[in-house]
Computed example of a mutant assay.
Amino acid sequence: MSNVTKLYMIRFFQSLIPAYVIERLFWEMRGMTIPMVVMTEILFALTIVVLEIPTGIIADKWGRKRMLLVAAVIGCLEFLLLLFSTEFWHFALVVLLTAVAASASSGADNAMLYDSLKEDGMQSSFERIVGRMNALDIVSITIAALSGSLLAGKFGFSFNYWLSFASMLIALGFTLTLREPSRGDGEGEAAS
Rank of each mutant, 00 (worst) to 15 (best):
G121L: 14
V95G: 00
Y114A: 14
D120C: 12
L96Y: 08
S116T: 14
G107V: 05
F91L: 13
L117K: 13
D115N: 12
M122K: 15
E119Y: 05
L117N: 13
S106Y: 10
G107N: 05
A102Y: 06
A111G: 13
L113Y: 04
Y114I: 13
D109Y: 04
A108N: 04
V95P: 00
V95K: 01
V100E: 02
V95T: 04
L96W: 07
D115I: 12
F91R: 03
A102S: 12
L96D: 02
A108Y: 03
D109P: 05
L96R: 01
A99V: 05
L117P: 09
G121Q: 13
A99P: 00
E119M: 13
D120A: 15
M122L: 15
A102E: 05
L97K: 06
L96P: 01
K118N: 15
A101N: 02
S105Q: 06
T98P: 00
V94I: 13
S105H: 00
M112Y: 05
Y114N: 10
K118M: 14
L97W: 05
V94P: 03
A99L: 03
E119T: 14
L117S: 12
N110P: 01
V95Y: 03
G121R: 10
S116H: 11
M122V: 10
Y114V: 13
S106H: 11
G121F: 13
S103N: 00
L117T: 10
L113K: 06
L113R: 04
Y114K: 08
L93H: 09
A108M: 06
L97R: 07
T98D: 07
A111T: 11
Y114E: 09
D120N: 15
A108I: 05
A104F: 07
A92L: 08
G107R: 03
V100W: 00
A111V: 08
K118W: 09
D109A: 12
A108F: 00
L113D: 06
A101S: 13
A102T: 11
E119D: 14
E119Q: 15
T98H: 05
A101D: 02
L93G: 12
S105L: 03
K118V: 07
Y114T: 11
A99K: 00
D109H: 06
V100G: 04
L97N: 07
A92D: 09
G107P: 03
A101M: 04
M122W: 10
L93K: 08
L97V: 07
L96S: 05
L113N: 07
G107E: 04
S116V: 11
F91T: 02
Y114G: 10
K118E: 15
L117M: 15
K118A: 15
L117A: 13
L93A: 15
F91Y: 12
M122P: 04
S103T: 01
G121V: 14
D120F: 08
A108T: 03
A99Y: 01
A102N: 05
G107C: 06
S105A: 13
D120L: 14
T98S: 12
E119S: 15
A108P: 02
S116Y: 08
A101W: 00
V95H: 00
